[in-house]
């Protein structure tokens, strides 16, 4: 079992279920939040003596504590055909490892884990409604590792965003983001209510490890045909610059929604993801 993924939601959760995250509601034995008057919260067990004595108007004060709530964590997985790419690592293996890590980490602290796999439509047979049951979450994550992406587009993500509307949720948007620009905007707009962590599934083979010289007959995984390319340092440079610009655009879009994208390349490192989720 790999290390836990540690995450901090960016919002104060509310809801009925006790859990591990700071919430907007008060109650229980959480972190001290504030003091209110006894009339407002007539809880004699939590009278703050020190504050009561200090009050010149003889008001009685009661301590309030933050409740700890559970949140829902969703993984939205893009299953368009470009996710079939196998370079230094198999993309779907990486995605499977990430989902398994998420499933284990969330269910272990009482959060529920949901998964929606989409190509042009939602792939129901691979999806999972949010659950706290460890076995179901792990099974769904294992299923996604064996899935065979074949879709021509990722438009189903819009439907997925509609499905998880409601309470704010922590959403891992897992894709290689080889989407047309408008779809990218629409998906981020549809998910703007949630705490979205874009996970860019990348591969060193498709960027940094490109050969300097040689002929490459490239075949588009999404069926846009083949193209012959004569690799040479100048073209490689232009290629990398273009990829860099694409990443910068994506990062700009993601930052507008609050979080930097996480780059999942070649191998899945849970600690790196935790650092990314906690820091920045």
């Amino acid at each position: 079992m790999s290390a836990d993924i540690i995450y901090l939601p960016r919002w104060r959760a509310r809801g009925p279920r006790a859990g591990a995250h700071r919430a907007r509601d008060t109650g229980g034995l959480g972190t001290f939040k504030d003091q209110v008057s006894f009339l407002r919260l007539p809880d004699a067990r939590r009278i703050d003596l020190r504050a009561t004595l200090r009050d010149p108007f003889d008001g009685v004060h009661v301590r309030r504590f933050e409740a700890r709530m559970a949140v829902e964590v969703w993984a939205l997985v893009d299953l368009s055909a470009s996710m079939r790419f196998r370079g230094a690592a198999d993309r779907m293996t990486l995605v499977g490892a990430l989902c398994q890590g998420l499933a284990a980490s969330t269910t272990r602290i009482g959060d529920s884990f949901g998964l929606i796999a989409c190509d042009a439509f939602i792939r129901e047979e691979l999806s999972l409604i949010a659950t706290r049951r460890r076995a179901s979450a792990a099974a769904a994550a294992a299923r996604i590792a064996g899935a065979r992406p074949a879709g021509r587009s990722a438009a189903g993500l819009l439907a997925a965003a509609a499905r998880i509307a409601g309470q704010p949720k922590l959403v891992f948007l897992i894709s290689d983001f080889r989407w047309p620009e408008p779809l990218m905007e629409q998906v981020f707009a549809a998910l703007s209510f949630h705490d979205v962590v874009p996970v860019i599934v990348a591969d060193s083979r498709e960027t940094g490890d490109l050969p300097e010289w040689g002929l490459l007959e490239l075949e588009d995984l999404e069926g846009a045909g083949t193209r012959l390319v004569l690799m040479r340092p100048s073209l490689r440079g232009r290629w990398l610059v273009q990829e860099g610009e694409r990443m910068a655009r994506l990062a700009r879009l993601a930052r507008r929604n609050g979080r930097e994208p996480f780059r999942l390349a070649d191998r899945f490192d849970p600690d790196a993801l935790s650092r990314h989720l906690l820091g920045a």
Binding site: S82, L215, E219, A224, R227, L228, V229, L235, E243
Partner: peptide, 27 residues
């Protein structure tokens, strides 16, 4: 063509290159 086909997630990532296109026509 009997060339090794290299799958790539998206051809849109490849910069347009007239020399390559000419070479493809030549081959």
């Amino acid at each position: 063509a009997p060339r090794r086909r290299t799958p790539l997630p998206s051809l849109a990532a490849v910069p347009t290159d007239p020399l390559s296109r000419g070479l493809a026509a030549l081959l």
